[in-house]
Amino acid sequence: MVQQQAALLKPESLIAEFKKNGVTHIVTIPDSETNYLYELMKEQDWLDVVPSSREGETFAIALGLIVGGKVPVCVIQNTGMMESGDSIRGMAIDAGFPMVMLIGYRGWTRHGVITDSAARYTETFLHAMGINYYLLETDDDATRISVAFEEARANNRPVAVLVGDEYHGFNRM
């Protein structure tokens, strides 16, 4: 019998990408997809976590941080991203600064039928807002965060990274 190690997305891989891209702040509301990442982010002395009350706040707080010379990432769930429509419009797109958002892709699956409307509308929402996005499923995809940063900085626009799997590892394996 051949044993196969399932491909995983480890939170450590995301932290390494944040550090590589000079991220200083994470503006976030934790969700089930990013829970393990939250614990690890809190442990980094070079990273300041800003917990928010509602997702719409995260894009405005991030704009303030960017204006002040910092490099934030908004870490929220797709449901909260849709709640944030006006904030994304006014504080991310119209402001004309590079901004990367990491979005927990609740309900998404590569296999079978997607039944969760949160997942069904996620990419439709991003298309409507004209925001490009990349999908992370395993550690092999983690470098797409750097791609998102390059694109955001080149175009002074927000770019989304969709997290299509719960994180594995970090105190939980």
Partner: peptide, 13 residues
């Protein structure tokens, strides 16, 4: 309603 959030972000920076 988001000017206060943006002001917070700037204050933190």
């Amino acid at each position: 309603g988001q000017t206060n959030s943006a002001a917070l972000g700037f204050a933190l920076s």
